[in-house]
Simulated scan of single mutants.
Amino acid sequence: MGKDSKPKESGGKGKGKQAGGGSDENASKGKGKSGKSADGLGTCTYVKARHILCEKQGKINEAYKKLQDGWLSNGDKVPPAEFAKLASEYSECPSGKKGGDLGWFPRGKMAGPFQDVAFSTPVGATSAPFKSTHGYHIILCEGRKN
């Protein structure tokens, strides 16, 4: 339940003030006086992540549906151990044998959309499926550091 994005999506009909919700959104996306975004997205130097890579879109969608049915539809975070089980089952990347674990990697190591998604996914959150030059991916962000 600790995701910043989920409560905003499901809490739109709550009793809170509209202006307050808008400013929270801007605080998490915008930059503060220090030049760093409030949630650390886009400002870190390293990300620790797991991923699932599939050549075919249908296969990645099947894996994502399992994540949705198990956790995401309830607004829960996918436990790394459960993500690792799915990566072992579905991923066509050599990292799949290690539960999709990519370890820590610096900005600039991964290409194009993979890096963009990895560095913009909040810690503990799982990305939606996306396409890169290598195929279709789902990323679980496990940590950030400078």
Rank of each mutant, 00 (worst) to 15 (best):
N61Q: 00
V47D: 05
G32W: 12
G16K: 02
L72R: 03
A118F: 07
I60F: 02
V78E: 09
S73D: 08
K17W: 05
S120P: 07
D76K: 12
P79C: 11
K33C: 07
F119H: 04
L102E: 14
S28Q: 13
E89F: 09
E89R: 05
G99N: 04
A87I: 08
G12T: 02
S37I: 11
A128N: 05
L72I: 05
D39F: 13
E82S: 12
Y64F: 05
S127H: 01
R50S: 09
A111C: 14
Q18E: 12
K17E: 06
A63K: 02
E62Y: 00
K131T: 07
G12F: 02
K109Q: 14
Y90C: 11
V47I: 08
V117N: 12
K48F: 10
G32M: 13
N26K: 14
A19V: 06
A49C: 09
W104S: 06
E89W: 08
G75Y: 04
K66H: 08
K59L: 00
K15S: 04
R50I: 07
D39C: 13
W71C: 12
G32C: 11
K97D: 10
M110A: 15
E89S: 10
T45N: 15
Q68L: 07
S73L: 08
V78Y: 09
K56G: 01
Y46K: 12
N61H: 00
A87N: 06
C93D: 15
C54N: 00
T126Y: 04
G11D: 00
G58C: 03
A128P: 06
A87Y: 06
G16Y: 01
A49S: 11
M110C: 15
D39K: 13
G11T: 00
G20H: 04
K29T: 09
D69P: 12
E25V: 10
R107Q: 07
P129Y: 00
F105P: 14
P122F: 02
A19D: 08
F105E: 12
A81Y: 06
L67A: 00
K31V: 13
A128I: 04
